[in-house]
Design a protein around this nucleic acid. Structure first.
Lengths: 201, 201
DNA sequence: ATTATGACAGACAGGTCTGTCTACAATCAA
DNA sequence: TTGATTGTAGACAGACCTGTCTGTCATAAT
């Protein structure tokens, strides 16, 4: 059975889906559209059309639109974590500097064309209730906070847990300012405030 | 003509609409639904039904749904400004304390039942492009920033303009944390950071 | 008394939404 | 060859979307 082969050879992704060109095209198209135009504003017909896939194929891979949205967020979170970790590792900075480097890294993204804020904050605005989407948002929030907590701990800061909350808050605030005010420099502002907090801790 | 009378007697609102029970019911219902469930998730039929109004009446007062959304945001911004100003005036604090009081005030809102973040941040997530909605968002952002800039200037802080940007960023970050992490204490965290910034300036 | 206004109820059009279904083609393994 | 898998194409259902329209009624100014 090919599923077993795929799993045995490590080709399945973490959710157990084996790689499929159609699935990846759907997810890539959905990610682009959901992020740039909003989720409720984009119908599945649009995703179908722009990914060149049959409707039945989409519903074979994702049981509902909400599931597709959850997959979009899961992928975005994975990519964020991958990018953050490898970037920080490659820089090989002392722990205190790594905290600040996070703000430099997101600052670059603020200037990228098509930047429209945080996918998770945006999704939260559209999906109030509990559900798959909210689960993915919560999971990502935990990842961000854990990243800061780990870096703060490595830096030997006093009260790394509470500091992580504050750093996450700065991170969010910078994102909002970059998105709503078109002010990518918010990343540097946040970085400066973070520097002060680290020095005090 | 009654419109002239209404205008002459000062009964017209700032957009030139004269007070109308139906209009107010529509706007109140739309505000409640848009804020709590998201904008694209609520159709005009729903607003009609729950405000007990005829569809023709809604479209007599608002040319389109987008216009209704813009009116919702305009009203939310007006109420925010009114509430902020009167609260700060009533407290009659020294300027430096007033800046911090802003965070105390929003902190109270974070705990209010039904709190679901900032209406403007949420709306921005759903309305990417330029348009009436984005205009109202920008206008409100300016109000928030101007409030901080004015208070910072009164407090005699160095670089009140740049400080206003940073304070707005903290304000946004606290709102996001309260909404997404269910952490109303973010207001106090932001307040503490703001206190440090003011002391340094 | 007449006219104007505002609001009511609700049908209607034309489109889009999500999700299901049937039928057919291509690939590949047994 | 045969059968399983995966994908494509597109019709279809039923609900909901925004926005328009007709017609009725109550109120109130002229």
């Amino acid at each position: 059975m090919s599923v077993m082969r795929a799993a045995a050879s490590g080709l399945a992704d973490q959710a157990g889906h084996r790689p499929s060109a159609a699935r990846e095209r759907i997810l890539a198209t959905a990610s682009r559209l959901f992020y740039s135009e909003g989720i409720h504003a984009v119908g599945v017909d649009r995703v179908i059309a722009e990914s060149g896939v049959a409707k039945a194929t989409l519903y074979a891979h994702f049981t509902s639109k909400e599931e597709l949205v959850a997959a979009y967020l899961a992928q975005a979170s994975d990519e964020w974590q991958q990018w953050m970790r490898t970037s920080l590792e490659r820089a090989a900075l002392p722990p205190g500097e790594s905290v600040l480097a996070v703000f430099d890294l997101v600052g670059e993204r603020f200037q990228a064309p098509g930047f429209r804020g945080c996918p998770f904050i945006n999704a939260a605005a559209e999906f109030p209730g509990p559900g798959r989407v909210t689960e993915r948002i919560d999971a990502h929030r935990t990842r961000v906070r854990d990243l800061f907590a780990g870096l703060a701990r490595s830096a030997g800061a006093a009260g790394p847990e509470s500091l992580a909350d504050t750093l996450t808050m700065l991170y969010d605030g910078a994102m909002i300012s970059a998105q709503l005010d078109g002010r990518p420099a918010a990343a540097q502002d946040a970085r400066e405030v973070a520097r002060g907090l680290l020095a005090a801790a």
